[in-house]
C-alpha cells in the first residue's frame, strides 16, 4: 500500500524528537521521517518516501546548516511528485523576505513560530493532511479516525460509491 508520509526537517536533535513525539499519533496512518538537514531531506524524499508512497506534509525549520528550509520547500514545490505536499515552516526566526519567498514560490501552507503549542501543531497537521488527502486520495476511509472526520464524511457522502452488490 502506498502510504502518505510526514517529513520533519530540524537540525536540533531534541527539537526534532519533540516534533516527532507530538506527531506520533498520526504515525498509525502516516509514517514520519525525520531529517536534520535539507540535503538529507532531499535524499530521504527521493530514496525512501517516493518509492514507498507520497509526501503529504513537510514541516521544516528555516535556519538549517547548509541549504535553508525555505529553499528546500521551493525545491519540493518545483517537483511534480511533491507539488501537492503541504508545507509548514516551523521556525524561531525567518525574515520577512524568506517568508515571502516561501509563500510565493513554495506555496507555504502554514507558519508556526517556535516555541510551538503542541495542540496547535497537531491541529495544523490534521487540517493540512485533510486538505492533502481530499485533494489527492479517492479512498478516504483510512483517514477518518485521524483527520478531520467532518470534511472527509462530507466528501464521502457526496462522492460516488464503489461497485455493485
Amino acid at each position: 500500500m502506498r502510504r502518505i508520509h510526514i517529513l520533519c526537517v530540524e537540525d536540533e536533535p531534541e527539537v526534532l524528537e519533540a516534533v516527532v513525539r507530538d506527531l506520533a499519533p498520526f504515525e498509525e496512518v502516516f509514517p514520519i521521517e525525520a531529517t536534520a538537514t535539507a540535503d538529507e531531506a532531499r535524499r530521504v524524499v527521493r530514496d525512501v518516501i517516493l518509492p514507498r508512497g507520497e509526501l503529504g506534509l513537510a514541516i521544516c525549520d528555516h535556519i538549517l546548516p547548509g541549504e535553508d528550509g525555505v529553499s528546500f520547500m521551493v525545491h519540493l514545490h518545483a517537483q511534480e511528485a511533491t507539488r501537492a505536499t503541504r508545507k509548514v515552516l516551523l521556525t524561531a526566526q525567518a525574515g520577512l523576505q524568506a517568508t515571502i519567498v516561501a509563500v510565493n514560490q513554495a506555496a507555504l501552507s502554514h507558519y508556526l513560530a517556535k516555541p510551538w503549542n503542541p495542540d496547535e501543531l497537531v491541529a495544523v497537521t490534521r487540517r493540512l493532511l485533510t486538505d492533502y488527502v481530499l485533494e489527492t486520495q479517492t479512498n478516504l476511509y483510512p483517514f477518518l479516525s485521524l483527520l478531520e472526520a467532518d470534511r472527509l464524511t462530507e466528501r464521502i457522502r457526496s462522492g460516488p460509491l464503489p461497485g455493485d452488490e
Partner: peptide, 9 residues
C-alpha cells in the same frame, strides 16, 4: 545521546 537521523532511520 540523540542519534544521527541517518543512523536512526
Amino acid at each position: 545521546e540523540p542519534l544521527q537521523t541517518e543512523i536512526q532511520r
